[in-house]
Amino acid sequence: MLGAAPILQFGTGRFLQAHVDLFVSQALPLGQALGGIAVVQSTDSAQSSIRLAALGRAAGYPVRIRGLHESRPVDEVVNVDSVRSAWHAGRDWARLLDAVATQVQVIVSNTADQGYALDPADGAALLGAAAAVPRSFPAKLVVLLQHRWRCNPSAPTTLLPCELVGRNGDVLREAVVGLASGWGATADFIAYLRDHCVWANSLVDRIVSEPLQPVGAIAEPYALWAIERQPRMLLPCSHPAIVLTDELASFERRKLWLLNLAHSFLAECWLTEGRPHDETVLEAMCDSTMRTRLEAVWHEEVLPVFDAAGQGDEARAYLVELRERLLNPFLAHRLFDVAQNHAQKKLRRFAPVIQAARSAALGIRQRRLRAALEAASG
Rank of each mutant, 00 (worst) to 15 (best):
F350T: 09
T289A: 15
V297L: 08
D307F: 07
L327W: 05
R291T: 00
L335W: 00
R349M: 08
V281H: 01
Y318I: 00
F306N: 06
C286D: 11
V297S: 02
V320K: 13
K346V: 11
H333P: 03
A309E: 15
V302S: 05
T292C: 10
L282D: 03
R349E: 03
A315W: 04
D337Q: 15
P352Q: 03
A339I: 01
L347V: 12
D307P: 05
F336N: 12
A284Q: 01
P304Q: 09
V320G: 09
P304K: 08
R291S: 11
A332M: 13
D287N: 13
R349G: 05
R293F: 01
A351H: 07
A315F: 09
P329E: 04
Q355F: 06
L347N: 12
Q355E: 14
M290G: 05
G310K: 07
F336T: 14
D287L: 09
L282K: 07
E300Q: 14
E321M: 14
A332N: 11
L331Q: 11
V281Y: 01
F306A: 07
D287C: 10
D313G: 15
D307C: 04
A351Q: 09
P329G: 01
L347G: 13
W298G: 00
H299Y: 10
I354V: 11
N328S: 04
D337S: 08
D313K: 13
R348W: 08
L347C: 05
V338F: 00
L327R: 06
E295W: 10
A343D: 14
P304V: 09
M285I: 02
L331C: 14
A332T: 15
H333E: 02
P329V: 01
R348V: 14
L322K: 04
S288D: 13
D337T: 08
D307Y: 06
L335V: 02
V338L: 03
E324A: 08
L319H: 08
A343V: 11
Y318L: 08
A339F: 05
E283D: 06
H299N: 12
K346H: 13
A309G: 09
E314H: 12
P352Y: 00
A332C: 13
L331N: 07
L322D: 00
L303A: 15
R349K: 04
V305C: 14
V305A: 12
R334K: 14
D307Q: 14
A339Q: 07
G310I: 07
L322M: 10
V320S: 11
N341A: 14
F306G: 09
A296M: 13
T289R: 14
R323L: 08
D337I: 10
R325E: 02
F330H: 13
C286V: 10
E324V: 06
D307G: 06
Y318M: 03
E295T: 08
R334N: 07
E300A: 15
A343H: 13
L327P: 01
V297I: 13
P352K: 04
V302K: 06
Q340D: 05
V353N: 01
L319I: 10
A315R: 06
Y318W: 10
G312D: 09
D287P: 05
R323H: 12
